[in-house]
Simulated assay, not measured.
Amino acid sequence: MKIGLYFGTFNPIHIGHLIIANHMAEYSNLDQIWMVVTPHNPLKKKSALLDDYHRLQMVHLATEDYPKIKPSDIEFKLLQPNYTVNTLAHLQEKYPNHEFSLIMGEDNLKSFHKWKNYEIILDRHEIYVYPRLSDEKDILKLKNHPKIHLVDAPIVEIASTFIRENIKKGKNIRPLLPPKVWDYIDHNNFYRK
Rank of each mutant, 00 (worst) to 15 (best):
I173T: 12
N172Y: 13
L140R: 02
L50Y: 07
D52M: 10
Q92D: 07
L49I: 10
L150T: 13
S160Y: 05
F112I: 13
K70H: 10
Q92S: 10
I120N: 07
P71L: 00
M58D: 04
K68Y: 04
D135F: 06
N188F: 11
I15L: 09
L142T: 05
K168I: 01
S72F: 01
E75W: 01
P175A: 06
I3H: 01
A153D: 13
K147R: 15
M104Y: 00
L176W: 07
D135N: 15
H54E: 14
I185W: 11
H40M: 13
P178T: 14
I139P: 07
N108I: 02
I158G: 08
Q80K: 10
L79T: 15
W115C: 01
D31E: 14
M35R: 10
L109F: 02
K147S: 12
G4W: 12
G105M: 10
G105A: 07
N86H: 12
F190M: 13
I158K: 00
A21N: 07
T63I: 05
E136L: 08
A25M: 07
Y83A: 11
Y184F: 15
Y83V: 05
N29T: 14
K143L: 11
F76H: 12
P81W: 04
M35F: 14
K45T: 02
K193R: 12
I173E: 10
G8I: 03
P154H: 08
L140E: 09
D183E: 15
E26V: 14
G8D: 00
T9Y: 08
V59Q: 05
D51E: 15
H17W: 02
Y66T: 00
N117W: 05
K141V: 06
Y191M: 02
V85N: 05
I120S: 05
N172F: 12
N189F: 01
V156I: 11
K68E: 02
L50G: 04
I158W: 01
R164Y: 04
I127E: 03
K193H: 15
L140K: 02
P12E: 03
L78V: 05
E126K: 13
H17V: 03
H54W: 10
D135C: 13
D138S: 02
H149F: 11
V156S: 03
N166E: 06
I139W: 09
